[in-house]
Design a protein around this nucleic acid. Structure first.
Lengths: 201, 201
DNA sequence: AATCATACATACCGGTTGGTATGTGTCAAG
DNA sequence: CTTGACACATACCAACCGGTATGTATGATT
């Protein structure tokens, strides 16, 4: 009866991606399951067959959609680099040259969920914090390698610096989303890049 | 029949403060009018007498609760200062020494609303952006004065720098809220302070 | 003293929400 | 060929949502 019959993991993937889009647009609490089902052409039966409840769907989105995205965009470019500052500045420059189309309008999916859900639901907070700390961990490790290679000033504290870098980046994205200005976004990234310069040895 | 009879502006103020607390906890969209009324002991009749709808209540909270708070906490200390960097570092130091109790758990009310509402509602975005740009404007003006007084490096761009400072601060608060760690908050503020150092002439 | 707007309280409503119970077609195993 | 688990679809539900219509006590005005 269906077009593609009996492809459960494809169905699950469609649900995850539609849920991601809905959550990215409206946040988790305001995300409508009905809307997600309308987008996918599926029904409640399908949804609640793959996920026990809305919360589980949200947590799965974090782990199976947002995490891979973030890993590809932000983790991979820093993996094994001995010049983290150069790598990060190249990354910022690329982001400034051609910003992701959703950045200025919808913001960072991870940050959005952190701001909305952390105070409200502990399970969400822990899950989001895990992903966030993974990110900080990647930056910290990169900075430590840069410290060994001599690119990074020996006086800095890698963990604190990494935490600040990620925070400042999320801050830039968040404020630019409010301004809805690509120019502001570029300017803010420029200042962040300028800050990275001060970390050189 | 009531304890304090016929005090409309007091009633309005109670509604605003209860709404602020509810919004601060749950965000605007998830904020329940019923809960606000339960907190105040008032009824729908009172609410809809003072505000045409929920949206108007939210916008009034921004203008009449959040704006004065922010002005007192962040604008006032920078007014007319000729050493903005010193003033801001003193401010950060004070915030690090005794953080506002809600910062690490609920975050900044302004940032919360910006992240939630900017993509969803244009009226909210404009109102929030007005307040945000007022903040950036205060910092920009302060930096310009510091530029004249010689405290601030002549090479910096005041507007871009101010935007970044506010963004980074909001980023620090937001990430610390997710971590729910005062230590992380202090560390992040420390890094921001370290950044301010690099702006000296 | 009568009138009338103000400042609420009470009761109610349609719509939407997340969630569930049940039905049904498909496919693989025995 | 039958059975049974899987992968959905359909129908339904209580709870809550924002909003409205109406009632009423108060205080000022004429």
């Amino acid at each position: 009866m269906n077009a593609s019959i009996k492809t459960p993991d494809l169905t699950r993937q469609k649900l995850l991606e539609a849920a991601f889009a809905e959550i990215h647009r409206n946040g988790f609490q305001a995300a409508s399951l009905t809307q997600i089902l309308a987008d996918t052409g599926l029904t409640k039966g399908a949804l609640y067959h793959h996920f026990p409840d809305k919360k589980a769907l949200g947590l799965a989105v974090i782990e199976e959609v947002i995490r891979p995205q973030l890993a590809a965009m932000m983790f991979a470019p820093l993996a094994d680099t001995l010049q983290p500052l150069a790598a990060m500045q190249a990354l910022l420059k690329a982001k400034a040259r051609e910003p992701d189309p959703w950045v200025v309008t919808l913001g960072c999916p991870l940050n959005n969920l952190m701001q909305e859900m952390s105070p409200v639901d502990e399970a969400f907070r822990l899950q989001l914090n895990g992903l966030f700390e993974a990110w900080v961990g990647v930056v910290t490790a990169a900075l430590k390698r840069g410290l060994k290679s001599g690119e990074v000033n020996a006086a800095i504290k890698p963990a604190d610096t990494a935490f600040f870098i990620v925070s400042a980046l999320e801050g830039c994205i968040g404020m630019s989303k409010n301004t809805q200005s690509v120019a502001a976004y570029r300017g803010c990234l420029g200042q962040l890049s300028r800050y990275l310069d001060t970390l050189k040895s």
